[in-house]
Design a protein around this nucleic acid. Sequence first.
DNA 1: CTGAAAGCGCTTACAG
DNA 2: CTGAAAGCGCTTACAG
Lengths: 335, 335
Amino acid sequence: MASIKDVAARAGVSAATVSRVLNEHPAVSPDTRARVLAAVAELEYRPNALARSLRTAQTRTIGLVVSDVLNPFFTELARAVEDEARALGYSVVIGNADEQPRLQDHHIATLLDRRIDGLLLSPADGASPLLRETVREGSVPLVFVDRWIPGLDGVPVVRADGCAAIRDLVRHLHALGRRRLAIIAGPAATTTGRERIGAFRAALAELGLTLPQEYIGQGDFQADSGRRSAAGFLELPEPPDAVFAADNLMALGALDEFRGRGLRVPEDIALAAFDDIPWFPHTAPPITAIAQPTRELGRAAVRALADRIEGRTASSVTLSARLVARRSCGEPERT
Amino acid sequence: MASIKDVAARAGVSAATVSRVLNEHPAVSPDTRARVLAAVAELEYRPNALARSLRTAQTRTIGLVVSDVLNPFFTELARAVEDEARALGYSVVIGNADEQPRLQDHHIATLLDRRIDGLLLSPADGASPLLRETVREGSVPLVFVDRWIPGLDGVPVVRADGCAAIRDLVRHLHALGRRRLAIIAGPAATTTGRERIGAFRAALAELGLTLPQEYIGQGDFQADSGRRSAAGFLELPEPPDAVFAADNLMALGALDEFRGRGLRVPEDIALAAFDDIPWFPHTAPPITAIAQPTRELGRAAVRALADRIEGRTASSVTLSARLVARRSCGEPERT
DNA sequence: CTGAAAGCGCTTACAG
DNA sequence: CTGAAAGCGCTTACAG
């Protein structure tokens, strides 16, 4: 590949001059500019971003470490992040933690080594040593998106609050006559995992219901754990009459299990999920879900991060989620 | 951030020595090694990957440019690519073309600027000038995955052949009494778009059926186009009695449209899709689909690329897809 | 308006 | 076994 020296030689100028025209420095005469541009075209020259970044100490790249790319919520989030980042002149490099803290740290480390300008993180669990150090040293501007880590002050959080929607869901189930409500929870190490079970329990309490231990399935936000938890519920002497899965993948797992056992939803058991996805209107039955403003989250997160990177102050933003009632808990599906 | 000089100073050695212990060069005495390692730990030193890559002319990174991340097929492919790449010691940077040639080229350019060691590409359409040049110059080892570009010789292709499965599908529909078969095709500029409609037409011909122009919906592999094509079919004087969507997103769009108009699947119209996804068993009705060995594709593609990067010869690989009959075309759903 | 020089943070022959 | 030196490909004060 041609280097800046080749271009300089061809245009009969110095490398400094080539650099200037490429960076649109004003002080270049029109015709040297033309000669340089011609040489660039002839040699099909592409500046080496590594060298440039090494010199300027910025990469115009942000990292996005997501808990699980196979989860449509994160896929959509990643997509929104990419779009907004591109609009602001950044590229994004995605790392997939697959819900494993180890893998998350691997990606964070790789991204730091690459000297990304900023990091968007949806932590797979609590704060690893690497993460604490990153925050403490301020080695890279950081913004949490969706999930966050309490106690790491000064890190903006962009997320959706699902509490009100979960309360709506519980009331919805209650209104439809369900009384034995169970939850397939996310990992307690995640904020979303805790928030969702907390809101669920609180809403139950408001209605005078409790959440017995057997009605708490411990999931990890992935499909298999939904399957296992659902199986556990069904083997109880008194199985629940409604199950709330704390994300869409665990709902998929639960649905698999229900069908495998020949149960009808919602007749035999109701099912609802956190996170709405395009397929939910088409499942049998259509699944009641809590929808997050996913694209807005992605965009807001990028803007907050860009603010930090570029020296402005960034603030946290909390949007809200909303209940989309379909048929999987009974009734609905008018529209 | 600490640099190699800081570490060297702290350990009382030269930068060269620090470099040697970090790269596990054998010729380092045990105790200098220990001193260096201690300094590294104390300073929480992380080598600058940019500088290293600039010097060594390799990034240990491969690029993956995918036609549409929101398509579960590509998400799963990306995931498999990441896993295999990590196993081989590479990281991967993903670019999402969103089915737009312009955006695809933007990502390819960005990746080239970053001096990735190799590129995995599922082209959004024909060969852009940038792509032709990349191949011609051999500026970066390239492997096509899923889709490819005919005429660019010497570029290995890792893909699944869907022809036999499509033939199986057409026979399946025929056996169930369907005679007016329509297709929502992908872009003619893509190999998969062409292959799928070609195989469909050929299978029809074998049964003495033709594929009239009105029964060809021109889609772009995204949901909206599925919706529009389905609407077009339904407004025909003689609508089809079966629709084959050339990917899962267009099937989603078609399903949306059918339901919006109150049509029953499969009673009023049969539906089948290319690409199987985890939700298909749970839709109403469960959707008959053609499943690709997606993970194997991703892994094989990475291996082929690594072969090229590391100077071995890489060959193309063609796996095959298979029909998974469910209820959306009538009957099935035993299992 | 333009060039020579220094330097970003590494690695790697070359000496010793 | 270890260090000094050169160089990867850029950018950017500093002179002129």
